[in-house]
Design a protein around this nucleic acid. Sequence first.
DNA 1: GCAGATTTTGCATAGCACGCAATATCAACA
DNA 2: TGTTGATATTGCGTGCTATGCAAAATCTGC
Lengths: 196, 196
Amino acid sequence: MTECSGDLRARRRMRTADTIRKAALRLVVTRGIDNVTTEMIAHEAGISLRTFFNYFAFKEEALMPPPIDFDERAIACFNEGRDSLLNDVATLLLTQFEDVDEDRAQLRFLFELSQTHPKLVLVRDKAFQQYEDIICKLIAGRLKVAPDALRPRLMAACIAGAIKVAMSGWVRSSEGTAADHVRRALAALETLFSEN
Amino acid sequence: MTECSGDLRARRRMRTADTIRKAALRLVVTRGIDNVTTEMIAHEAGISLRTFFNYFAFKEEALMPPPIDFDERAIACFNEGRDSLLNDVATLLLTQFEDVDEDRAQLRFLFELSQTHPKLVLVRDKAFQQYEDIICKLIAGRLKVAPDALRPRLMAACIAGAIKVAMSGWVRSSEGTAADHVRRALAALETLFSEN
DNA sequence: GCAGATTTTGCATAGCACGCAATATCAACA
DNA sequence: TGTTGATATTGCGTGCTATGCAAAATCTGC
């Protein structure tokens, strides 16, 4: 197996996963989450039920956003570290929020749904955990310490937590963009505990 | 329905829930989580399968620790606010870790399990979310602001995140007590982002 | 001990999730 | 272009999860 083949297969795999995700989302939007079965999703995506479970461990996972991968340039810029760490993290993360309206609408729909539907709460938290892990690795890289050291892990936990708070605030208030909320929350972290 | 009856029923309900929790834990410890069914748990707890689902929405929820309630005195002390907010939070939270060895062993067992078993990851995060909500209310009370204001929510998110980091560090390192790890993590929050 | 409210339970059922083995598809090489 | 080994897809069978519903049991206050 050459590298090329692995790449091809990986890409194909990602495309199929995305097809399933889109199918699941479409069905949930139109029929409501409680009226969508795994069989429907598989059928809508043009695969067998068994294949669905080759891609996702459980039904709700198909409604999770795919793992993010940051722009190479953005990561390099982050590692240089022109600004304070917190600001640079904000800059890096907010490149993610430059998406088109359709994506934002989907994000909002899922986030709203995840606040009421119990199983989606779990899925949302899992997504944030993955997010936190990535941020932790990035910070550890910039600080030149091990990824499981206390400091990067704490920082990542706070940042991920702040993003979660910001997002739920955004969904509820509907004032300003999601990026605004995230920016504000991250900025508040700096002096959160130092001024009492 | 008088207040007394409600109290009686609530207490009875909590006792039953606890019986189920203990039964579930006992079975999981002895047989391994993959070999335990809801029927076994119900049987072990002396109730019907249907009743199990009256108490827990899904199987793994029976392995979640019950919602904590802080000591009245401790809360009052926290609201007075002798020390810095972060220190007082630490003091308040660490009253929770004064438990007997048996409880700590259980906590550790479940936390270890939750790091490998996918569905328990979800449950653990849900437990931490509840924890975060309680902390948020407490902080909001002390700061005399609304519980859904940005500052208490951010603080609670950071504190809950720090505790999660501390706990997973504790389970992995097995050096020092859980309280030590939590204390250290919370102390680190103060200057986490202010010194770059 | 009776009436009303609440809880428990049995039963039926749709759906979830996985193991297994057969089949199909694909990338590489001769 | 056909062969080969690897990977992906699929069908089938199965046990378990989780819920609705209505009957039975149990509580509570009077």
